[in-house]
Design a protein around this nucleic acid. Structure first.
Length: 660
DNA sequence: TTAGGGTTAG
């Protein structure tokens, strides 16, 4: 009750003070209203409106804070320093320029005695976008206290703040208020931001409820929900929603494309991209990035060429557009063509932290540590500041090349020289670097003493290093943490059992196997794929001979292995931990998917052209050995991407230096 | 004033 009566008092004050301030003369004549010159009043009002409109259009043209400050002092001179409408616009522009609301904008706001709903909302919105988010809520409380009725944008801004804070409880409270103060719950904007708030906080069902109950929906409501389902891994529901969407715009299409990409369904993503083009929808840089990422996942360069053509047609070639360019760098790197990636990088007119980082990560993946470091120092010379990903790139580069000292120095300088605070991921890189280089004790110590809680990546790096150097004792420590953090990740169990097998501890091997069986975990089948001459992708699963050409593939492989054996190749049986005879182990090795893919590649691609294979798991020792030999005998370059990195086999040698 | 995005380690 108190709030309501106060509301009316304030509203009265507001109207009086408003005219009082700006139209001093009129308000003085308030008691003798019959004598008031209405035409003069209207004229003044009109003048003011013209001035306001002019100021707002001037504000729209502002793109730096100094211009705004100039306009602000002009505003004060004109007696408009209390004009909420213009000031609201001013604060909106400042927000757009990322000017911290706590500084200059807050000062402006504080000087206004009776801010209206728009001014309040612009400040709330500023805080909601730039933080501190709590301040948005405080200003809203003050607004309510002052009896100012929110507008729908006020709620949009507030829900944005709740989403940023991931505070669904607060969001719910404010949601309830939309019912009580004016029926905002049926407003389209409010509904859309509500959906977004709920799904960002992880309450997809609540978002769905809002959606279902909205009296009116637009393409934005649908897209919000499609994205939410996609992020939740539920592409079926996302697809159903998309089907039901009456008018699909570019953003909705893009949401589907990137949804498929994020859920590792690149084929579906490319199909969507094609359908979008067929539907005659425009393609912007975000949509293109979706298509390019899909190609990167598939290692489908023929498709990438098509996307490049689309980009050119839209005037968004990698040379002109930094976003598209960075995506192409990443794609070419992941397709094994790091030189092509660098060609794109060099051709780009504008470069930013994404372009540099993508290129550095690309070099790192391909074992080109020197190039990665060189580019990093080049980057430092420019205005572009390295970020957390850049450091993951350079640290990985050092790690793959065994550059321990260099890596240590970089790690130490991250925060000191570049202001990038090391996160668990960076510690994982350091553990990897030390562990790979054989400093297992030191790596363990780092994992145990790091100031942050180590995550799976840290212990996983240590476990991987233990496999490389055959250290079951430290492996056990790492595995213990991993089994707690990632109890259902089968790879960790396999890795540990491999380490036991290498050390001849067969009892431990069977213990782990029993553990895995007890948990009902299934081994991921090894899978490799290779792009044939016509651009079609052929998949091979370990132990599966279902390909139409499987007889020829088998024959070609036998031929290759015989030649290798005559030259001294001995199958490396160590990666098979089953308790079976050596003969059986050798047979099993022959069915590894990357060998099948290699054989298919030898059969079907043109002599002299490189064979490119992608594998979902880490390549095994024996396959690595065979790839080396095959590259020498057949005089073919073999590029193999496993789940870790690239291997370039040329003339019997691998770029990883047998160190992976 | 609300929806889609590029670089990430074992």
């Amino acid at each position: 009750m108190f709030a309501i009566s106060r509301h009316f008092i304030k509203l009265n004050q507001l109207s009086i003070s408003f005219s009082h301030h700006h139209y001093h003369s009129q308000s003085q004549h308030k008691t003798i209203l019959p004598n008031l010159n209405f035409s003069l009043y209207e004229q003044k009002l009109q003048q003011r409106e013209v001035l306001e409109t002019k100021l707002i259009s001037l504000l729209n043209g502002c793109n730096n804070i100094n211009q705004i400050k100039q306009l602000h002092s002009h505003l004060i001179r004109k007696g408009l320093d209390q004009c909420s409408f213009v000031l609201a616009k001013l604060i909106r522009i400042l927000t757009k320029l990322n000017v911290s609301i706590d500084s200059y904008p807050r000062l402006i706001f504080n000087q206004v005695r009776y801010p209206n709903a728009f001014l309040y909302t612009s400040v709330i919105r500023g805080y909601s976008l730039l933080g501190p988010f709590d301040e948005a809520i405080l200003i809203y409380s003050r607004m309510r206290w002052d009896g100012i009725r929110p507008v729908s944008f006020t709620f949009s801004a507030l829900f944005k703040a709740c989403a940023a804070k991931l505070d669904v409880e607060l969001g719910r409270q404010i949601h309830a208020q939309t019912f009580f103060i004016g029926g905002y719950e049926s407003d389209l904007f409010v509904g859309n931001t509500l959906i977004d708030m709920y799904v960002k906080c992880g309450f997809l069902d609540c978002g769905r409820c809002v959606f279902d109950e909205m009296p009116e929906r637009d393409v934005i409501s649908w897209t919000s929900l499609i994205v939410a389902y996609a992020k939740n891994g539920d592409m079926n529901v996302a697809g159903e929603l998309f089907e039901g969407l009456p008018e699909k715009d570019m953003v909705a299409w893009t949401a589907m494309i990137t949804g498929y990409v994020q859920n590792a369904k690149p084929k579906e993503a490319l199909k969507m991209f094609e359908m979008m083009r067929d539907a005659g929808v425009r393609t912007d840089e975000v949509a293109l990035v979706g298509g390019i990422s899909a190609c990167a996942q598939l290692v489908a360069e023929k498709h990438a060429q098509w996307i490049l053509d689309v980009a050119d047609k839209e005037g968004l070639s990698p040379v002109k557009n930094v976003v598209v360019g960075s995506a192409f760098i990443d794609m070419y790197s992941k397709c094994g063509r790091v030189e092509e990636a660098y060609r794109v990088f060099e051709s780009m007119k504008e470069k930013n932290v994404y372009s540099y980082s993508s290129m550095i990560v690309g070099f790192a993946m391909h074992g080109k540590a020197d190039e990665a470091m060189k580019l990093f120092y080049e980057m430092v010379e420019t205005e572009t500041k390295p970020n957390r990903v850049t450091f993951i790139g350079v640290l990985t580069a050092c790690s793959h090349a065994g550059m321990v000292q260099q890596g240590r120095r970089l790690f130490a300088s991250m925060q000191k020289d570049y202001g990038v605070v090391p996160e668990a991921d960076h510690y994982a890189c350091m553990v990897d670097l030390l562990g790979r280089a054989g400093h297992l004790e030191e790596a363990l110590e780092l994992a145990e003493t790091m100031p942050l809680e180590p995550h799976g990546g840290v212990w996983g790096a240590l476990l991987g290093a233990c496999r490389l150097h055959g250290n079951p004792d430290i492996a056990e420590i790492a595995a213990k943490h991993l089994f707690e953090l990632e109890p259902n990740s089968i790879g960790n169990y396999i890795l540990l059992s491999n380490i036991y097998a290498l050390a001849g501890r067969m009892e431990d091997v069977s213990r782990i196997r029993k553990l895995v069986r007890g948990k009902g975990l299934k081994k991921n089948p090894g899978c490799s794929w290779v792009e044939a001459k016509d651009g079609n992708i052929h998949e091979f699963y370990a132990g599966e001979m279902t390909h139409p050409k499987s007889n020829e593939i088998k024959k070609e492989l036998e031929k290759l292995l015989d030649t290798l054996k005559r030259e001294g190749y001995k199958p490396n049986l160590s990666s098979i931990v089953y308790d079976i005879s050596d003969g059986e182990k050798e047979c099993l090795l022959k069915t590894h998917s990357e060998k099948l893919a290699l054989s298919f590649g030898l059969l079907t691609t043109t002599a002299g052209s490189p064979i490119k294979i992608v594998k979902n798991l880490r390549v095994c020792e024996d396959c690595h050995l065979v790839m080396c030999g095959a590259s020498r005998i057949t005089k073919r370059e073999i590029v193999l991407r496993d789940n870790m990195r690239f291997h370039h086999f040329r003339d019997g040698v691998c770029s990883c230096g047998d160190f992976w």
